[in-house]
């Protein structure tokens, strides 16, 4: 196996309930992997294992070919972008400050931060005049784009996305998808995208990982999984294409 992200026999429990059960997974570099499953299937936990927000009870998680550096997780996480549903934008910081926060912490010069912020906002089709606004002054779609810009600021090699595009109307979502793919074309990264929206996964993901009750059900190229679902359950999950 030569994945940039490698999970080996990972098990995670909360209290008595098993969230992830003996799960092994390899994610190749530069891929966009869609993690599909219902709510409670363990897909968010899977994502948080990769950046060390969650530590496994057993099994190993290797990223960049090594176990997570437990004594220096902060620096490690700056190589791994993270964007979530609800965006998690900091309400007290203006848009430019939200996007450029990591640059400031990395002691970039203000000019470099400005330039990088402008570049990302252009790529994600955000008008420059939004820079000085606060998050609450933006629409949901605009906030999601800002969340992506912030996650991409330091040009991370891995980008973890936890349903970052949910909650906006289909047209806006499709526009954001297009912009996001353009951004990735300009700045390639390995993307792990957790979603419950199969249409989104089909549009964005090259690989699919199907999770059910903490277990891995099927992995493979998106087209292949769509064509040959391993179980009836998978067929039901990937068969739904409501907003496509």
């Amino acid at each position: 196996m030569s994945g940039i992200i490698e999970l080996q026999a990972v098990t995670k429990r909360y209290a008595e309930s098993i969230v992830l059960d003996d799960l092994s997974l390899s994610i190749p570099p530069r891929s966009i992997t869609g993690v599909i499953g219902e709510s409670g299937s363990g897909k968010s936990t899977l994502l948080q294992l990769v950046n060390g927000l969650v530590l496994p009870d057993s099994g190993t998680v290797n990223v960049f070919g090594k176990p997570l550096p437990r004594d220096d997780l902060a620096r490690f996480r700056r190589r791994v972008g993270y964007a979530v549903q609800g965006t998690g934008l900091f309400p007290h910081l203006r848009i430019a400050q939200n996007i450029g926060l990591l640059g400031a912490l990395e002691r970039w010069s203000p000019a470099d931060i400005d330039a990088r912020t402008a570049e990302l906002m252009r790529l994600m089709d955000l008008s420059p005049e939004l820079k000085l606004r606060y998050p609450y002054q933006l629409s949901g779609g605009q906030q999601q784009r800002v969340g992506i810009c912030r996650a991409m600021f330091l040009r991370p090699e891995i980008l973890l996305l936890d349903e970052p595009f949910s909650g906006v109307d289909p047209l806006t979502r499709r526009d954001i998808h297009t912009r996001f793919l353009e951004l990735l074309a300009a700045e390639p990264a390995t993307v792990v995208l957790v979603t419950h929206d199969i249409a989104e996964a089909r549009r964005l993901a090259s690989e699919l990982v199907i999770v059910h009750d903490g277990r891995l059900i099927q992995t493979g190229e998106t087209a292949e999984v769509m064509r040959n679902p391993a179980t009836k359950h998978v067929a039901l999950l990937v068969g739904d294409s409501s907003d496509d």
């Binding site: 700056r78 993270y82 979530v84 998690g88 309400p91 910081l93 926060l101 990591l102 912490l105 973890l160």
Partner: peptide
Amino acid sequence: IDPLLRRVATALGLTHLQQLRHVYIPL
């Protein structure tokens, strides 16, 4: 403080002190 903001602050790679200074204290 919104748990989502705490999680994001950690996930973005802010150290504990940076989280205090840039997120917790201002909020």
